[in-house]
Design a protein around this nucleic acid. Structure first.
Length: 513
RNA sequence: GGUCAGUUCGUCUAGGGGUUAGGACACAAGGUUUUCAUCCUUGCAACAGGGGUUCGAUUCCCCUACUGACUACCA
């Protein structure tokens, strides 16, 4: 009872612990987000720990990428590799090297682990020899380890400096119960578990399993929220806590469902992004060895808030019909028991919809700053206030800032071509004369007054018994080049009457039927 | 192969012993508009299958199927 209370009263400390083997996958982003929401809601802490215990898989730049991605996303950590601390604590496992060995030794001393000398080749040979070979209680007697070798042999091997690993010793026939906050009670028989390697002499580093348990314990992690690919090894972890005598303060587990491919089966991978044309990484990533570029949400024009909102709802729901959430709202609404158990297919269309929604909410000034960069690329220099007005007029039809140019180019440059199908449908012999007349009407409104001008044009149209759609579309064609865009009189107000008249003249000169 | 987990509209999901099985995205139609969008309205469309338990099952139990994860001196 005492212990239960103790666990309940513990401060919430969670961690996100990626290994720096490449860019952060979008599924990892979601895992980190759920950790973050959970920690914030419980006024707890969140730690960024780098699990680089596999020296062979280290990728330069990956750690920096991860940090930059979270900065962009607005997921803040309280402690981690990137946050200085004055206690001299490292959050990089390769730098914590010296910590782990003693725990492996402790297990060795207690007889809960043993030393094995089998080389990878020997194990590989065994795998070929015995179907479904597993290094466990049933097979370890055939292998070269401190359980089978004499003390003498072990000494000689050690003296010769032979490489070895430390394996956990798991005895069969016991049921391990893992209480998972999302999946419920999961029971596994120790007979199906293998004697996992905990530590290797070759690089003096622990494997994930040991490092993970030791660090989570030392860092007083209260909740381990991670992807469900870890569920099968959770019993091993429980066992490790037990062997080390830490079961009382073992963190609670929550295994998140996977993010699946948009179509077909299997978990979402980098390839799916390439194949279907959407990013699976938060930021663009250039592979250091192949120089290949993988696209990122940031570079594709997504707003971090939109990505967060989309990801939050992929596998979790508030139980209400609210869909748009600020980070603060997510923090207060989030709960692990409303996380679904089944994997979620990645719905890229929905991600776009969220971005469209957020685009409408982002301050125009901010959008203008981004768009001005695009405009500069097109050789257009304009006042910011003008750009802001343009954005006001067109943003509702855009999903990305990148859509702005296509929707608004005519505010900055004259049409170069005229949409053929519109010409065919609307442009008649007498169109030029009517456009001239309308031009003359527009001229009389100085300064330009859109509503009055509109009324005057409409009056002209009805007096001449013209077809509104035909005339308006021809005027639009002259100014825009297409049959699209915002209100015509708003456009005229923006580009000015003089420019309007010139464009009309240009259209009359250039459009042939 | 083995272990573990999952399965409600095309997708994300709500619900949960008696419901017209709800919402959102997408799609379609209509409306509005000078156009394209937006917007509004409407429509389309789901409980994997089989056995139980029960007056009654999509909901609880079992089996099957399917799907996935895991099965490294990777994390």
């Amino acid at each position: 009872m005492q212990k239960k209370i103790k666990r309940k009263m513990r401060p919430v400390i969670v961690r996100f612990a990626p290994s720096p083997t490449g860019p952060l996958h979008i599924g990892g982003v979601r895992t980190a987000l759920y950790n973050y929401l959970f920690a914030k809601q419980h006024k707890g802490k969140m730690i960024l720990r780098i699990e680089d215990t596999d020296s062979t898989r280290f990728v330069p730049g990956a750690e920096q990428y991860i940090i930059e991605a979270f900065e962009w996303l607005g997921i803040e950590f309280d402690e981690g590799v990137h946050i200085p601390n004055n206690q001299g604590i490292s959050y990089r496992q390769s730098e914590r090297k010296s910590i782990y060995k003693q725990y492996a030794d402790e297990l060795l001393a207690k007889g809960m682990a043993y030393i094995a000398f089998d080389t990878p080749e020997e194990i590989e040979a065994k795998r070929k020899e015995i179907q479904n070979f597993q290094y466990d209680a049933s097979t370890r007697i055939q292998m070269k380890n401190t359980l089978t070798l004499t003390e003498e042999e072990v000494k000689t091997r050690m003296a010769k400096g032979e490489q070895y690993v430390i394996r956990i010793r798991i005895e069969p026939g016991e049921i391990i119960k893992v209480h998972d906050l999302i999946c419920g009670e999961v029971e596994v028989n120790t007979s199906v578990l293998d004697d996992k390697v905990l530590w290797k002499s070759a690089d003096q580093l622990p494997t994930y399993h040991l490092a993970n348990i030791v660090d989570d314990h030392l860092m007083e992690i209260s909740h381990v929220i991670r992807g469900s690919e870890w569920l099968p090894s959770a019993p091993l972890h429980v066992l490790l806590y037990r062997y080390l005598g830490w079961e009382d303060t073992m963190p609670q587990f929550a295994h998140l469902p996977l993010l699946l491919k948009p179509e077909g089966n299997g978990k979402l991978s980098k390839r799916d992004g390439d194949r279907l044309g959407f990013p699976v990484f938060p930021l663009e990533w250039r592979s250091p060895d192949s120089n290949e570029i993988a696209m990122g949400y940031r570079e594709k024009g997504y707003f971090p808030q939109a990505l967060i909102n989309f990801l939050a709802l992929l596998g979790w729901n508030p139980g209400t019909e609210q869909e748009l959430f600020s980070m603060e709202e997510l923090i207060s609404a989030f709960s692990l028991d409303r996380v679904s158990k089944s994997g979620a297919k990645f719905d890229f269309e929905k991600a776009k919809w969220f971005n469209h929604k957020y685009l409408q909410l982002i301050p125009v000034s901010e959008l203008a700053d981004k768009f001005i960069l695009v405009l500069k690329g097109k050789g257009v220099e304009t006042e910011k206030s003008y750009v802001e007005k343009v954005i006001e007029l067109i943003k509702e039809r855009a999903t990305f800032v990148e859509d702005f140019w296509e929707a608004s180019a005519f505010f900055f440059v004259r049409p170069q071509t005229y949409d053929e199908s519109v010409v065919k449908k609307r442009w008649k012999d007498n169109t030029p004369q009517h456009l001239q007349a309308i031009g003359n009407i527009l001229k009389t409104f100085t300064p330009f007054r859109p509503e009055e001008a509109h009324n005057a044009v409409m009056q002209y149209i009805s007096e001449k018994e013209l077809n509104t759609g035909q005339i308006m579309n021809c005027l639009r064609l002259s100014l825009v080049g297409y049959a699209k865009g915002p209100d015509l009189f708003a456009i005229i107000e923006m580009i000015g009457v003089n420019e309007t008249l010139e464009r009309i003249q240009l259209a009359i000169n250039n459009i042939k039927i």
